[in-house]
């Protein structure tokens, strides 16, 4: 699984961080950082949750 964030859409509201803190982090500078672009299988459910909960529909996954 590869995680891709469209930073033109992302507004750093950190909803994804709440769902999958291992993968997404919004730092003090208020930018989103993807900590792990290729999360392991144990994180896939959390990442999918982040994709669905992102109100800007900014996260996509590639196989």
């Amino acid at each position: 699984m590869k995680v891709i964030v469209d930073f033109d859409l992302c507004e750093s509201n950190a909803i994804c961080m709440a769902a999958a803190p291992e993968v997404f982090e919004v730092r003090d500078d208020d930018f989103l950082y993807v900590l792990n672009e290729n999360p392991g299988a144990e994180l896939h459910d959390k990442v999918r949750e982040a994709v669905e909960r992102c109100p800007k529909q900014a996260i996509t996954l590639e196989d």
């Binding site: 950190a14 909803i15 961080m17 919004v26 730092r27 003090d28 208020d30």
Partner: peptide, 12 residues
Amino acid sequence: WNRPRHAIQARQ
């Protein structure tokens, strides 16, 4: 306001 990270931490 313009503190998105605070909002999500507060929610938790």
